[in-house]
Design a binder for these strands. Structure first.
Lengths: 127, 127
DNA sequence: TTCTTAAACGCAACAATGTTGCGATTTATT
DNA sequence: AATAAATCGCAACATTGTTGCGTTTAAGAA
């Protein structure tokens, strides 16, 4: 893997994501980060953080891409992205639901590598 | 609800989607429909078909929006969009997996209205 | 600490995707 | 056939994401 560096912009963006209760989109990060760095740089930093497995990418039901900090399972060092997410149709917040464990029967002839389970409706704030 | 009409463009697009094994994106429909109607019209027709509950919208893991014909459950007239989809990371096809039934424990304090369950990996064609 | 170099950056330009307004056309009803 | 509202095409615009390139900067080596 290519050498990666810690820059002020990268650290700032990672902090933003880590400190956020909900997943953030590029546009939201840009607003929160007002003039810290260029729009293009944000794209590149997000790509790098995803590649480094520090954050993960979530596609919301309307196609917006959001980013959230990964919760690594320190006990077994087995890290999967098979999170369950909740997308609020009113405030558009996206939250990781670590407590919900989905189960399903594996389809035949398909090789399943990742599971993306998104529930939508109203979050506790909007009920 | 507003009165809706059947136009040639609308019928053609619906046929395309119905006859397709995989879910189609706006760009794919535009290519298949070469010059049948304007790009903007395709957006509007897709919105209408979704509103009329004839097709449904799927967000792929990379944020691309695709459309597929709805499989109504004629036996009980209870129509839900809680489909399971499979997104191939190689050929980018999106397929509805009607046979897979996911189960999960409902999170507290959240009002779940829709379930979106997308598996990704390799489809039978790409394995 | 200074030197070195590749990673990361800003900027400009571009491509793709989605939206809006409006006058012209068309569908379905009277 | 006449009518009215839905739909369309076109132009213009907004947003989102990508690429190339010269400059800056982080981090290891001297």
């Amino acid at each position: 893997m290519k050498n990666t560096r810690n820059t002020t912009a990268k650290s700032a963006i990672l902090e933003l994501i880590k400190n956020s209760e909900v997943a953030l989109s590029h546009a939201e990060i840009q607003k929160l980060n007002q003039d810290l760095c260029d729009r293009v740089t944000i794209y590149r930093i997000l790509d790098r953080l995803v590649a480094e497995d520090v954050i993960h990418k979530i596609a919301t039901p309307d196609g917006t891409i959001k980013y959230a900090a990964c919760h690594h399972h320190h006990d077994n060092h087995q890290h999967t992205h098979n999170h369950v997410h909740f997308s609020c149709e009113k405030c558009h917040s996206v939250t990781c639901l670590d407590s919900v464990e989905p189960s399903f029967n594996v389809p035949e002839n398909y090789l399943v590598k990742e599971v993306n389970f998104t529930l939508s409706g109203l979050c506790p704030e909007c009920i």
